[in-house]
């Protein structure tokens, strides 16, 4: 292995319904089609040297998924980004590739920023529920895992939780902001939750937080949520923000600026 490359990719639109296994198969095939000189493990059934860090669950879209590829001949990161991207189906989009400087990528992924859209839910009710959730000390939720139902606290890992209107303003009342959107079709109401969650074990997922909202405030959205991970990376526990986990790799190569990334809100 002469080089390790760290890749940030998005799963968007209807491809959010891919499972982690679906994605790893798609990536392995794209690597073959693109002719990327990936390394293989030794042994009876050689596996390509591709490792994944913290995959988003099936049904959840993401603007910030990460993997690492080991190659046997050195690759130029930007070219690999373009080739891998064009070999993947639309909706699995490669956003950023850097050469790994060392350290563990997984260790840098300390928390995630989530965007949870709740069509049909009242933004004011959502805000009220979010406030009650954040005011609680503990919110015990139960999730069905492969090993059966499991109870855990969903509150402590949540560093930040706010509710917004679709136009981006923090919700005050259900009808506030209608003037600004008067020339657009207001459509049915929609609440948007924005949360920063620390990666803990067992993982606290956005749906666990939604379960929590139901428990503390009887807040029950009428239709399934659309969830997107906007970012993941090192956590600034004080501000509740995440940093770009690939910056550390870039810094050692001379502090190149990070690439322009599509605005997190405008996924298809």
């Amino acid at each position: 292995m002469v080089q390790r490359l760290r890749v940030r990719y998005a799963k968007r639109g209807r491809l959010r319904f891919t499972s982690h296994r679906d994605i790893s198969r798609a990536i392995e095939r794209a690597v073959r089609r693109a002719g990327i000189p990936v390394g293989f493990s030794a042994g009876f059934t050689p596996h390509p040297k591709i490792s994944y860090a913290g995959a988003a669950p099936t049904g959840v879209a993401s603007e910030a998924e990460y993997l690492e590829i080991g190659v046997v001949t050195a690759c130029e990161p930007d070219r690999l980004r373009a080739e891998l991207d064009s070999s993947l189906p639309t909706g699995l989009d490669v956003l950023d590739v850097v050469e790994a400087s060392g350290g563990s990528l997984a260790d840098r992924l300390q928390g995630s920023v989530w965007d949870v859209r709740l069509p049909g839910a009242d933004p004011a009710e959502a805000r009220d529920a979010a406030e009650r959730f954040m005011a609680a000390e503990r919110v015990e939720v139960e999730r069905l895992t492969k090993k059966g139902p499991r109870r855990f606290d969903a509150r402590e890992a949540v560093i930040m939780l706010t509710a917004e209107d679709p136009d981006g303003t923090a919700a005050r009342t259900a009808r506030e902001g209608t003037e600004e959107t008067a020339d657009r079709d207001p459509g049915p109401p929609c609440a948007i939750l924005r949360m920063v969650v620390r990666h803990v074990t067992p993982a606290v997922r956005p749906d666990d937080v939604l379960t929590g909202l139901r428990l503390v405030a009887a807040f029950a959205p009428p239709s399934p949520p659309t969830v997107t991970r906007l970012a993941q990376g090192p956590l600034d526990a004080r501000t509740g923000a995440t940093a770009d986990p690939l910056d550390l790799d870039r810094d050692t190569r001379g502090g190149e600026p990070g690439p322009a990334v599509r605005h997190v809100g405008d996924h298809k």
Partner: peptide, 18 residues
């Protein structure tokens, strides 16, 4: 689309195969 989060292996219904 709104039905898919509630079913097993939703990816089988979305198409978009290479």
């Amino acid at each position: 689309e709104p039905l898919l989060p509630s079913v097993q292996k939703p990816i089988q219904y979305v198409g978009g195969e290479l």
